[in-house]
């Protein structure tokens, strides 16, 4: 039942979930983005830079 309605009512999916309430939706969106963005804006760790350099060197050496 649920699956069938999911398949047939794709266009209204977003509106259906608004039964969550706009405040809660906004809350979820904000929290999700702060979790994501906090890591996104961190500097690339040195070990990953070094890894890329190593991969490139290995390839050019072979």
């Amino acid at each position: 039942m649920m699956n069938r309605s999911d398949q047939s009512a794709l266009g209204t999916e977003a509106r259906k979930t608004s039964s969550l309430g706009p405040e809660l939706q906004a809350h979820i969106g904000r929290q999700l983005r702060s979790l994501y963005d906090e890591v996104l804006k961190e500097q690339v760790p040195d070990h990953l830079r070094e890894l890329l350099a190593e991969l490139e060197n290995k390839s050019s050496g072979s």
């Binding site: 979930t17 969550l20 405040e23 809660l24 939706q25 999700l32």
Partner: peptide, 28 residues
Amino acid sequence: RSKLGQLLPLEAHGTAGADEAIENIGQL
């Protein structure tokens, strides 16, 4: 989203209306 809504404590349902400016990512 609907599962998260059930898992979050009830007070979270009201926090988006608090003093701070709302970016309203939910709408995005």
